Simulated assay, not measured.
Amino acid sequence: MNGLDSLILEIKEHLFNEALWWKIGEGALRILLIIIITRFIIKSGKILIHKLFTVRTRSAIRITERREATLMKLLENVLTYVTSFIALMMILQALTINVGALLAGAGIVGLAVGFGAQNLVKDIITGFFIIFEDQFSVGDYVRIDQFEGTVEEIGLRTTKIKNWTGELHILPNGSIVQVTNFSLNNSVAFVDVSLTYDADFTKAEEVLQELFLTLPEKYSDMVKPPEILGIQTMAGADVAIRVTSETLPMRHFYIARILRKEIKFCLEQNGFDVPFPRMVTYSREPEINSGKMNMGG
């Protein structure tokens, strides 16, 4: 019983030890300050990065908007990783953990694990060359293997691609071998216009040419007026004329729909009929009736 009483007394002494609680409170306050300062540094750093690139857009010497968006996102990620790592080390030190010994042990463990981390190193090196060579940037529409969509983020280890239905594909940079970038050059929209065989093709081309000259003013995605290449196909009920239009990158689908609408209204206003399959039927009833009349006579 005396041993139990002494144990309870010792616990009470520790619980009511003013120096102990002062040390705990000081450590908690230090950790709280570290977290607040870390969040402030990250938030302020991101604002500073945005302002830095905003100033560059107004200067005479600047890089492309694609690379600006990519580098800005990359710098934000690096700032977050580095600041969070330093804050973690400071929190461990506030908890009276020997950070130097921990880092030394981590170095030994890292050396042992390094032989199995070849894929990680490959991802980082590939990500560096993707950004350095400007293979693709944030906002570009790309196809990587079977994945196709808009690049949302390029990191040192992974690349995020979002397709038009909303799925987000996260690809390790080391797995990226071949890339098709649709956003580097202008696109081309093409539309086949069907006319009947008896239509006046010369007049139709003149009417369409007049229409095409007015379209770039209405639709800024058109680089220049559309062109008529000539007759594309001759089917059973119609003749198709191919029309092409150079557009801004990845705007050819939209411009193709606009061209179909404008061409349809223009042809209708100028009296051109829409071709449709025609069927001619013959009735042999009069011959049968006349044969019966001859037999009766």
Rank of each mutant, 00 (worst) to 15 (best):
G3A: 13
L7K: 09
E13D: 08
N17D: 09
N17S: 13
W21H: 15
I24V: 12
G25K: 02
E26R: 13
A28D: 09
I31Q: 02
I31E: 05
I31Y: 02
L32P: 08
L33T: 08
I34M: 07
I35S: 09
I36G: 15
I37E: 12
K43N: 13
S44R: 06
I49V: 14
F53H: 07
T54C: 09
R56Y: 07
R58K: 15
A60S: 14
E65R: 15
R67P: 01
A69K: 15
A69D: 00
A69P: 01
L74C: 09
N77Y: 05
V78H: 14
L79D: 00
Y81F: 08
V82W: 03
V82P: 00
S84E: 02
F85P: 03
F85Y: 12
L92F: 08
A94Q: 12
A101C: 03
L102A: 05
A104Y: 05
A104S: 06
A106E: 01
V109S: 10
G110D: 02
V113Y: 03
G114V: 00
F115I: 10
F115N: 11
G116D: 00
L120P: 01
D123K: 07
I125A: 06
G127S: 12
F129H: 13
S137N: 15
V138K: 06
G139W: 02
D140H: 02
V142S: 00
R143T: 13
E148N: 04
E148L: 04
K160I: 14
K162I: 10
K162Q: 12
K162D: 01
E167Y: 04
L168N: 14
I170R: 11
V177A: 10
T180F: 07
V188D: 14
D192W: 04
L195G: 15
D198R: 15
D198Q: 15
V207C: 06
E210W: 00
K218S: 10
K224L: 02
P226M: 09
L229P: 05
A235V: 03
G236R: 08
V239A: 15
A240Y: 06
I241R: 04
V243D: 08
P249F: 00
P249D: 03
M250H: 11
R251C: 12
F253W: 11
A256G: 13
R257F: 03
I258N: 12
L259K: 00
R260W: 00
I263N: 03
I263D: 07
Q269P: 00
N270A: 07
N270E: 10
V274A: 12
V274R: 09
P275V: 03
P277A: 11
V280M: 08
V280Y: 05
Y282W: 11
S283R: 11
S283C: 14
E287V: 09
N289Q: 14
N289Y: 05
S290E: 13
K292N: 10
M293D: 10
M293V: 11
